[in-house]
Nucleic acid binder design. Sequence first.
DNA 1: AGGTTGACCTGGACGC
DNA 2: TGCGTCCAGGTCAACC
Length: 273
Amino acid sequence: MGVPELPEVQRVVETLLPRVVGRRVQCLEIHRADYLKPRGIDWRRQFQGRSIRSVSRRAKRIVFRLDNDLGFFIHLGMTGRVSVVHVAAPLPPHTHLQIVFEADEALTVVDPRRFGNVTWLGEAAGDGAMGPEPLTLRPATLAARLAGTSRAVKVALLDQRLIAGLGNIYVDESLHRAGIHPLCRCRDLDPEAVRRLNRAIKTTLRRAIRAGGSTLRDYVDANGDRGSFQMLHRVYGREGKPCTACGTGITRWVIGGRSTHFCGICQPAAPGE
DNA sequence: AGGTTGACCTGGACGC
DNA sequence: TGCGTCCAGGTCAACC
């Protein structure tokens, strides 16, 4: 499991950037055409004679712009990895795409479970349906978006249309830091709780980025380096272990079909739960 | 609208 | 050792 969420994707972008920006594309090696979306794009023609102008992050996407401003993104899904390797190196299993640059180095996309994809954007930004970025989210914006739904906060925070970039790990960690029970209904959160949540999300994500993300099994950045934020997890993956704040055993429930970890003392149930 | 469930995939963990 | 089963979660689709 790698589970690239916002912090992991941020690290991948930071480590990938110096290795690909400004480089001219020599050719594409497409090993699995159905990993590329949408169908019907002539990928080789789009990359003919082009170079990479920029690499950035939008939510969990790695967004590339070519020197003609047309773009594409890589979504790593759950087990996706990117690296820049010499084309003579043995091809790793589950390699779906290689973007070969001059000097025979290739941006290599590997994804065993193929939950990820590479998507052609063209001129579009492609993020119309996505919610705002958590790191720059203002409390009033979060409050307004939460007020529009009665779903459990755990479920809503995983919905990329509400906020884009959080996944299962960082939702659980953020809710614990904010002292909010995962089953709290969004529109029942008072302004003070929303402020705490907004701050908790940012603090959690910033610290995770600083620690290089969470490596549970096999997440690595574009340099092949592992993250260490899993050492700092307060609830995720810690069922039955003592809460770092109060010592109570961490509870694990399935909420919205997702494994959910919380402290029953530090994250009290809302009235009626 | 919100809820629930399953499908997509593979590899690793676990039980017998 | 070796097989079968379960589980992980990002996203989408189906259905109630």
